[in-house]
């Protein structure tokens, strides 16, 4: 991305809004010409994420209700002007629960993705770089985990660990370690054979130097894309775990839990209790998927030829 013109546009916008908008518009249309639809998909993804992150950081901007207040409105009240998303069986305001609940799901998903990448990436690097029996053993373990349905593992872990924010993060993180491991290991194996690595070796660079200065920076580009898609996946897994009742204690507002509560009132046609949490989960996951897909196209010049 062209950083200069970016900050330039921002600086000028501060002086004269009209000229700034013009610069911004030109910058966007230039990117549009270069990357096409993928560019807009990424922008849309970023906007979605930004909005929800904003709601998570300062929910009071959007709602005056406490998500745990059991006197917010009537019991099972349908959406109206005061309660945009209606109220649940405990008379709590669902809109406010959505705003505060975004903290939980974002926190868990991002933390889980961070944990699994921080374990998976170094292991993948080392495994690909060192090779030998170390690589073979580790690959076998990771492949076994990878081929097994991740959610089932997460369920087992979450059930054993019991409810709690840290516990659910661990349960979600465990299942994505093999994703990073396999990706990074594969990349390392390819890059290890590149000419510039051979050149570095020829001039007597240390092994640690080769690993960190030559291989790692080249691996990390692909990891960025996977990281974003991984968060989307982790969001769905977190929500799934709380949906089946393995997630969090009831005192923490959580979208998946709200959904499972709404399930009980589905036969009586209470549509708002299940519609809104689901829509929120979907939109948030969509945001990260769009960001990831846009990044994948933009960071990969080969795909542009298509």
């Amino acid at each position: 991305m062209d950083r200069k013109s970016n900050t330039g546009a921002a600086a000028e916008a501060a002086f004269s809004p009209a000229a700034g908008m013009g610069r911004l518009f030109r910058w966007l249309s230039e990117k549009n010409k270069r990357y096409g639809a993928e560019w807009w998909i990424m922008i849309a993804g970023i906007l979605i994420i930004a909005l929800i992150v904003f709601a998570a950081v300062c929910p009071t901007v959007f709602t005056k209700f406490d998500p745990l207040d059991q006197n917010a409105g009537t019991q099972l009240g349908a959406p109206n002007a005061e309660h945009l998303f209606g109220t649940d069986n405990l008379s709590r305001d669902i809109f406010s629960r959505m705003m505060y609940g975004s903290r939980t799901i974002l926190g868990v998903a991002i933390a889980a993705a961070l944990v699994s990448s921080l374990i998976g990436i170094p292991l993948g690097l080392l495994s690909g770089f060192i090779g030998g029996w170390f690589d073979k053993t580790l690959s076998l373990v990771m492949d076994s985990l990878y081929s097994f349905p991740g959610l089932i593992l997460a369920i087992s872990f979450a059930a054993m660990l019991g409810p709690g924010v840290i516990n659910i993060t661990v349960a979600v993180a465990v299942i994505y370690i093999p994703t990073y491991f396999r990706l990074v290991r594969g990349q390392t194996l390819t890059i290890k054979e590149e000419l510039y690595v051979e050149a570095a070796r020829a001039i007597g660079a240390k092994r640690s130097m080769i690993l960190f200065k030559y291989i790692f920076p080249n691996v990390i580009a692909t990891v960025v894309v996977v990281f974003s898609l991984n968060i989307a996946d982790a969001i769905m897994t977190e929500a799934a775990l709380s949906y089946i009742g393995l997630g969090l204690p009831g005192s923490i507002p959580d979208w998946g839990m709200d959904l499972s509560m709404g399930k009980k009132f589905l036969p009586s046609g209470v549509w708002w209790m299940i519609t809104f949490p689901g829509v929120m989960i979907m939109i948030l996951a969509l945001g990260f998927t769009m960001l990831g897909e846009g990044l994948a196209e933009i960071l990969n010049p080969k795909l542009l030829e298509k």
């Binding site: 949906y243 689901g278 996951a285 998927t289 897909e293």
Partner: peptide, 14 residues
């Protein structure tokens, strides 16, 4: 893309 991001349990409920 949208369908990919719909949680399967929510789709079921809807």
């Amino acid at each position: 893309n949208i369908v990919y991001c719909i949680p399967v349990y929510w789709m079921g409920l809807m």
